[in-house]
Amino acid sequence: MELELLTTTLARALAFGTPLLLAALGEVVAERAGVVNLGMEGMMMLGAVAGFIVAAATGSLPLALLVAMLAGVAVAALHGVIATFLLANQFVSGLAITIGGVGLANLLGKEWVGKPLAAPMLPFDVPVLSDIPLLGPAFFTRQYALTYAALVLALVVWLVLFRSRPGLTLRTVGESPAAADAAGANVRRVRFLAVLVGGAMAGLAGAYLSLAYRPAWGENITNGMGWIALGLTILALWHPLRAVPAALLFGAFFTLSFRLQAVLPPELLTLLPYLVTVLALTLIAWRGGRGAVGAPEALGLPYRRGERE
């Protein structure tokens, strides 16, 4: 029974944590380049609706995923222009994109409410691996292809950020844009591209919800997941690999809040993921601020050549 509880909790944590992980990875890339993107929720919504409409109209999941990512990229480009070229307040721009994105997605999706998807993305058991005791039921049973894609993407983002020259440039742009500029990097272009990557990941996260996890379109389908992803980015300390256990932690508390409702006060379990985030943030602040834990030094600061940082 205890083992069943463990494996089921991990499996559900993975399923619920996938969109959080995808969006958090996108946020890690953008924030590592120094751009805060509060537009995640809006980008996820647009990805969700765009993916759903394309999947419903054409029946093609790959095309739907592509369009979902492009929808995220399109709005991210807006944020990117505002944040990196016009040097306006990133927080205001991101919030505006969330508010506008949610509204626009609901408007675009209006006529698709109540219409099921004929061919959604289906969960599957991974051959051979699903037969492994414990690990099989926990990670390789009834999961979606996008979940494994998200895990692979975490590795890819880590490799690019920490094991490649472009990644080094990106992180330098986020830490000290003036130094990166002096070293010959195009700060604005790097930041702009990082924001676009973030938008693509957010679009994919939204598509996971409307094409696989639900699968359905309904108003406010993300229901605040974009904001959780922002918290996750901090909980993961801006590290793509740490985002995986952080997403699992959020997912585990969420599923346990229902599984253990009979024995533990549900309010406590509903509260726990947020308590963990607050504790983590407190711990981070206590341990010496953003520099000590890996927050990019120039996070949220627009870069103008020649200005003192």
């Binding site: 929720e41 809006g42 919030l95 969330t98 508010i99 506008g100 949610v102 509204g103 609901n106 406010n220 229901n223 605040g224 997941m225 904001w227 959780i228 509903t270």
Partner: peptide, 10 residues
């Protein structure tokens, strides 16, 4: 359960 402000505004 999860943040709601922005979608309400929208």
């Amino acid at each position: 359960r999860v943040g709601r402000g922005a979608s309400d505004l929208a």
